[in-house]
Design a protein around this nucleic acid. Sequence first.
DNA 1: GCGGGAA
DNA 2: TTCCCGCAACGCGAC
DNA 3: GTCGCG
Length: 650
Amino acid sequence: MERTTARRARSPAIPAGARALKQDRFTPQLATLTDRVPDGDWFYEIKFDGYRLLAHFEDGRVRLITRNGKDWSDRFPALTGALNALKIDNAVLDGEVVALMDDGVSSFRALQEALSEGDTDALVYQVFDLPALNGQDLSEVPNRERKATLRALLEAAGADAQGTVRYTDHLEKGGEALLERLCRMGLEGLIAKRADGVYRQKRSKDWLKVKCARYEEFVVGGFTDPGGSRSGFGSLLLGAHDQDGKLVYAGRVGTGFNQRQLASMHRELRALETRSSPFHGPPRGAKGTHWVTPRLVVEVEYTERTRDGLLRHPAFRGRREDKSADEVHWDDPERDPDTAPAGAVAGSPPRRDEAWVAGVRITHPDRVLYPEQGLTKVALARYYEAQAERILPELERRPLALLRCPQGLDTECFFQRHPRRPIPDSLPRVRLRESDGEAEYVYVETAAHLVALVQAGVMELHPWGSRVDRVETPDRLVFDLDPGPDVPWRELVRQARALGDTLEGLGLTPFVRTTGGKGLHLVVPLRRGTGWDDAKAFARAVCERRAGQDPDRLTVNMSKARRQGRVFLDYLRNGRGNTAVASYSVRARPGAPVAVPLRWEELATVGRANRYDVNNLKRRLAALKDDPWADFDRCRRGLTRAMKRELALD
DNA sequence: GCGGGAA
DNA sequence: TTCCCGCAACGCGAC
DNA sequence: GTCGCG
């Protein structure tokens, strides 16, 4: 190759201590997590949040190798190109690929997005070590010399401070101050390296990482009374289980809550209150301390542990609905992603790939569930949180069937009646008789429960027609009007009104909603008292009467052929165990449509059953003066003997 | 979304 | 240790 | 008994 001679001349001198290179692969040296910035003969570097990559140059050509030895050159074409353009022939560079934000902060999230979109041009390779150069193994050369050589190499090779390949500078003193500054900037922390340390291809204490903050789960074992204008409680007393299963006190957290969380957690904690401390050993209960059965799990951010093992600068981050109290262990290694097994990814693996909604952790927040409008999982969680106030009155304490699509609309969805693993234990359940013994059903009571379902991949919510306290007596009927192909909207509306008139003629008050699909629901509030069989027989009789009055346009027959040009009146939503989609539930259909309660007058103007969706519902609700179903509870009636006689059911 | 068995 | 697979409802009415 | 349906 013609270029090599010119290049070699520019390479820096090989420092003393180098040996002949005997290996063609290096494993990156790893840092040990610590909570103190070491003092003495150390270098302090910024801890970049990206992918660790070793750049192997052989005869001027580079290969990018991950921590696990995979060749990722093709994943970073721009970086590979930039490295190949450098005047380096034979060397091994060690560094981190990062996505630098405008403010210089590196974002793992941004890096992942760049990778998944194949848009890796803007990434920067922060090089901080040089384990080999020109056939010489520099492992035994002190870090100080390696970095000086690296700096000279990059400079001579034409890598400048604004380019794709950058030398990672360090400070030789003032580590503590640096850490503080980095943390204020929102960076992860720093790496301290022994100035005279050799390059070890494994985790060692010559490299230390000091993080700005740590996140960990704790069990709530008590709370204190609020002071001043504070509502709910003052602080939570936290603990974690040690190896013997004893709950060890870990300190308290008194900040990071919003009003809603203060109120709802206080309510839950009071229900868990006990007379004696659940903790093994301290703390002693001062005045105003309440003990609780350790069940609630919270995630807390803190800077470090004090000498006594208590949390320093703790702040509440959210609930962990997905974890049960006995899973929370002291220093749970799973919680530190840097010591947890890394996947195929080099460097510090993701940690920010999660979001918090209503105090519930959302994994894969950016997963697109509805490709058409790019609606993500976290957006869906926020939708259910925002609409909880409207959804819960209908949904509360009803056994649920769930339509789950964990990977989004485009992949397999499935119904689930019996909660299994991904439905967290924190959601309330009820055991119900079933044809074959008994089975468990989940229900919801709070916004956090709704969001926890989204986290489990739930899209549609289909409640029973009864509540768990009296599960054998429905408190509503649902009539599903399903238009066959070629049935125009105005015909569907006409039939809905006609069925509504029939129900009113019987002394009942029907309410109407779009289903988000093709059809409409008429929902009739009942005073509880009638059993399932009678309710269903009643609904069937009503539908059959209507179908008898207009047989060319209505059918109660499920078979497809009978539906052509007709509206199918489905009374089968009214049997025990049958469900109908809930108001304000999103549907797993293109466009993220929502089932929406309407006033009867609106029926003609909405024009179609999927008129409202997650995005445009807000506008409708803002324009609405009153809840169209505000009178629902006041209109409850029992199914009377007279009604049944009217339908010839007696 | 996740655990278990296979590789 | 990592990968991949399987799994996650039910009952009615039509035929 | 099996299929289709929501």
